[in-house]
Computed example of a mutant assay.
Amino acid sequence: MIARKLWMSVTLGALLLVNHAARADLVVLQYHHISDATPPSTSTSVSLFQAQLDVISELGIDVVDLHDAAKNLLSNNPLKRQSVALTFDDAYESVYSEAADILQERSLPYTIFVDTKAVGNRGYMTWEQLQTLAERDGVSIANHSAGHGHMARKLGETEADWQQRITHSLDSAQAMLQEKLGTDLALFAYPYGEFDEALEAEVAERGWFGFGQQSGPIGPLSGKTRLPRFPMANAYGQLNGLKDKLASKAFPTDANALPDGIMASNPPTLTLPLAEEINPARLTCFASGMGRIDFKVLDDEISIKAPKPFNSRRFRYNCTHPAKGGSFYWLSQQWLDLSKPED
């Protein structure tokens, strides 16, 4: 937590001067496969992908370069308009065969997060295909680890062993991207969206932005090493909820007030400080697989806790609250149960 706080480039005092309802935030969309023939849980059909891009265009939302937009927004250089960035995890072949030409025809920038050990394997892009895309205007290639392993420290794993393991995965992948493609972007996407404070500190030490898989937009108070993205697979990317996601605003809570995410108890408790923009009567919170859940309002904070334990390795609390202009403040807190089996 300390490392993350030190790396925040703006102070909370200055940020309180920002009009949260009127500001423009960055929405990042996360894709895996763009295909009608790959696993449904991680796939977006070609027709749905096209329709999502149509909605973005119809709303007049700027599609921007991920690194530049995140750097500006988190360096107290506000975005002029609500913006969206497109990201693809794992470098699946369908991104090359299906999505790339669609995006080139529309002149849209995007970022591919690459598991360097998977390159050339069945279903993944080759280095030659990645090079072809890297040479196109607006295409960025970034680090998604070497091997796509679970990177939070495992139960029973010594600190020295963990340090050796993640240092190799982070740095060998970055070196390979530099060697093969000449790219050294300060971007990292956590495999499975899993992270803990120690891993965040490693990402911060390298000066990288770290992206998870918890939903929500990015605003000035977001943490640079736990940036949210909206999953866009078929189950989550349907058009009836897309407009709300694209227009959403980051919850007016300093990321440094959020917990690590490694559970101390099951179900975990999320405590949020009361903010001027938040009326508890209009707040709605959900838990993965449980639907809407209750919360308690204390003197100066909101306490959120699911009614029963979770059985999964990863789950989330999602909270929304109306903002001006018909948009919603949106916060997603990732939780990780290290006692559960890895994928």
Results as ranks from 00 to 15, higher is better:
Glu98Pro: 04
Ala201Cys: 11
Pro217Lys: 00
Ile278Thr: 01
Asn234Met: 10
Tyr236His: 08
His20Cys: 02
Gln104His: 07
Ala275His: 02
Val63Asn: 09
Asp68Ser: 03
Ser339Lys: 10
Leu246Thr: 00
Ala37Tyr: 11
Asp184His: 06
Leu246Ile: 01
Pro309Asp: 04
Gly326Glu: 15
Glu135Arg: 09
Ala22Gly: 04
Ile304Ala: 07
Asp62Thr: 14
Gln164Leu: 15
Asn77Lys: 09
Trp208Val: 06
Gly219Lys: 04
Pro231Arg: 03
Ala250Gln: 01
Asn19Asp: 15
Leu108His: 12
Ser94Asn: 14
Val297Asp: 02
Leu66His: 06
Trp330Ala: 02
Ala69Val: 05
Gly13Pro: 00
Gln164Gly: 13
Leu199Ile: 14
Pro109Lys: 04
Ser94Val: 02
Gln164Ala: 15
Ser41Val: 09
His148Tyr: 14
Cys285Leu: 01
Leu6Glu: 06
His32Gln: 02
Ile262Gln: 14
Ser312Trp: 02
Asp25Lys: 03
Ile293Ala: 12
Ala204Lys: 05
Leu221Ile: 00
Ala275Met: 04
Leu298Gln: 14
Ala118Asn: 12
Tyr236Trp: 11
Thr284Trp: 00
Leu272Asn: 04
Tyr31His: 00
Ala118Gln: 13
Leu29Thr: 08
Arg153Gln: 15
Leu15Phe: 00
Pro217Ser: 06
Leu66Val: 08
Ala173Pro: 07
Gly261Met: 11
His33Phe: 01
His150Thr: 12
Phe211Lys: 02
Ala204Ser: 09
Leu130Tyr: 09
Ala281Phe: 03
Tyr31Ile: 01
Ser107Ala: 14
Asp68Pro: 03
Asp68His: 07
